[in-house]
Design a protein around this nucleic acid. Structure first.
Lengths: 407, 407
DNA sequence: AGTATATAGTTCAAAGTTTGAACAATCGCT
DNA sequence: AGCGATTGTTCAAACTTTGAACTATATACT
């Protein structure tokens, strides 16, 4: 029950029906492949003729292809259709505080190559380095001619339309335009997005078990805490690309000081830094962020802490359980407010999900409005090891499969 | 950029284009009336012939009608079109703790009659009373044959599909089905919705100055605190109709006890009860809810408090300003998280908006992620005196103007 | 081996749309 | 009265889905 915006609408032309059905076919092949024309017709409750027309069009455009023939009890064998993914490539980039990740992926999100290097904090230098490495990676894998774009995930707010990085506190960037020089240097279209939003896209488009719901949130817990919100199959960006910044919702107005300058933020309780600070008895407010983040002198990371907790260090366990509790309490705010079909949580802490789940669940139950909300499925990010990189890849692939804009 | 749900999609038929354009025309007439066919053609960038076809169809169905002819500098005069609203009626019902409101409205949301009576807390008795009053009101205004439905706003969670009131704490109702008996007794379709969500619908469909944006939230502050979320012109209900329950997000984990059983909820700081409690120095946790709500013995209301604050009572001012501050702090959570184009706030406290605005703004700025977010337009509900009743009316009228479901 | 039956995929005409141009209806101005 | 501009209608062409008939291919049964 959507209201049509009388100042920004899309009139239907005589090819609108075709565009809609074309995208439906494409998505059905994506989801159910291998699938035959006749199956598509049954699923869509449409004549097989229409499917044939559309399928031929999609084959001609190189979006799908005919594969093996299937088996039936009787009658002519169906020819299976597949989405063409294995020879269409994407470069995915994940810029983090310590290191930058570079991945070559196909359209199915499968990793073909991966390299890492120390992040350069000067945008110009970073772009220069990226251009060289992208070219080299594409050449090494014969993917130069079939690469359709570059997706970049960054830890900060991004104006998705212009591609400008508005504010990336951990990198110390404000109003940085990576897109223009990177696009010029590689001759490829470049898409940039905030990391938690990218993770949500990864879950939506590249989730392992195609059963990703149409309404969910992705909670990214790492150096910071951010949320990617998907409603009706659409990533919510908000007026200023800020949507999803639940990391700075207060748990306590007189709680610990947060790196953002405010007090008692959810992030100040559950970020990797906050967890480390709890273990070491640091006061987050007293520390320079760099001090904790920098690998140089203090190379004890959250992963080390989790390992200690797992191996029986009682103080480490307590610190992690503290984070678990606050994770659950803050999660209640998001789940009460948006009531999604499920939550994905990503971040290093989720490697210890088996340890923290009971605590998270109990804290969530304390503040959830209903039992159903308390029982919202919580899933460990299903997109494998590098959700941010997969999300960056999804930035490039998603537009091809998205629903046409209409009405 | 929406993903098509491969398990729940809508195939385009050969009349889909027409349905889309038909609804666009209908909405353009609604928004820009009076408007001519030629104007519609220009706005939609479509031939005048298509408009003529659609307009004739809409006139035949009684949705719009031809009015006066307009003026032009040269050439044939245009005939203006209007949406038929004045002789299509709706019954709107607002069930509140103390009293129940009953309004007869036309499709434009204009009030034609209004009556009030003490809420009966037994659902059966209330329905019986409502049936009698609805019939009487329709007869008195010759609206029996032209009434197209009943909309009901209730202070609690509602399963919008089945119409069952899942939980209305202030009324003490759980799993109450008002819809079936009310529909049977009046022979009218009945739509029931949670009050803040209804208010959001009112703002979207009946906002005074047609400039309601497509992404906004409605914060309803009364006995409880709830939020109606509209994203992409669509009211967000969530998996279990819980979406929008930001009222119980914590401001402080060791804050005042809330009526919901939890601690430190936003609602426990800013609801009318909380404001009164702050004034009287009560501890909200010590009081039976009824004690404060019941008009019987303690008939000092939030409106009385606001009057005292306005007339110089310093303790009253302090209590109200306290509420203003916490309103702003909690608002930051919602605005950071959803980043809407604007916020509407409704409730008794907004009669004192001139007094509290600076405090709200400052508190919001303290916790807003960006300056732009801090400057999100805050509007006093524009739908006049009875947002809940207008919202109830919108429940009936909205489906007629909504975009068709597609793809 | 030959026939019947079932399923996959294609072909073709009919019906519903938009599209684009031409046409009819007004109205003001000279 | 005639010209030009604007509104609204009519008609054929182009693009869709729709529904039925048709071809291709495989299995089951006699």
């Amino acid at each position: 029950m959507r209201k049509i915006n009388p100042y920004d609408f899309q009139v239907a032309t005589r090819s609108t029906s075709r565009e809609i059905n074309r995208q439906i076919v494409l998505n059905l092949v994506r989801e159910h492949q291998p699938i035959s024309r006749a199956d598509l017709a049954r699923r869509m409750k449409v004549g097989r003729n229409v499917i044939s027309m559309i399928v031929n069009e999609l084959i001609a455009e190189g979006l799908i292809y005919e594969g093996a023939t299937g088996k039936t009890v009787r009658g002519r064998k169906p020819t299976f259709l597949h989405v063409r993914t294995h020879d269409r490539f994407v470069i995915a980039i994940d810029i983090r505080f310590s290191r930058t990740f570079l991945m070559l992926s196909d359209f199915g999100g499968h990793q073909l190559a991966l390299e890492t290097f120390d992040t350069l904090f000067t945008p110009d230098e970073l772009v220069e380095e990226l251009i060289v490495r992208v070219q080299r990676m594409l050449n090494a894998h014969n993917a130069t001619s079939n690469c359709e774009g570059i997706g970049v995930a960054v830890p900060g707010m991004v104006d998705h339309r212009t591609g400008v990085i508005l504010n990336a506190p951990t990198l110390g960037w404000r109003d940085v335009d990576l897109r223009t020089p990177l696009a010029k240097g590689t001759a490829l279209p470049v898409y940039i997005e905030n990391a938690p939003k990218a993770c949500a896209l990864a879950e939506m488009w590249l989730g392992r078990n195609g059963a990703t719901p149409n309404n969910f949130v992705f909670v990214a817990v790492s150096d910071g805490v951010g949320v990617g919100i998907v409603i009706n199959g659409e990533l919510i960006r908000g007026r200023d690309n800020v949507a999803g910044e639940f990391g700075h919702a207060p748990l306590s107005l007189d709680g610990p000081r947060c790196l953002c300058g405010s007090v008692g933020c959810w992030e100040a309780y559950i970020s990797n830094l906050a967890t480390l600070a709890r273990y070491f008895g640091y006061d987050l407010s007293r520390l320079k962020p760099k001090k904790l983040l920098d690998d140089g002198e203090n190379d004890f990371t959250i992963n080390d802490l989790l390992a200690r907790a797992r191996s029986g260090d009682e103080r480490a366990r307590a610190a992690v359980q503290g984070t678990a509790r606050y994770l659950g309490l803050g999660l209640a705010t998001v789940l009460n407010g948006l009531n999604p079909e499920c939550v994905y949580i990503g971040g290093e802490i989720m490697t210890a999900w088996d340890m923290i789940e009971p605590t998270v669940r109990q804290a969530l139950a304390e503040r959830a409005m209903t039992e159903r909300v308390a029982q919202t499925p919580i899933r460990v990010s299903t997109v494998g090891e590098y959700p941010r990189l997969r999300g960056a890849a999804a930035l490039v692939t998603a537009p091809i499969f998205a629903a046409p804009r209409v009405a």
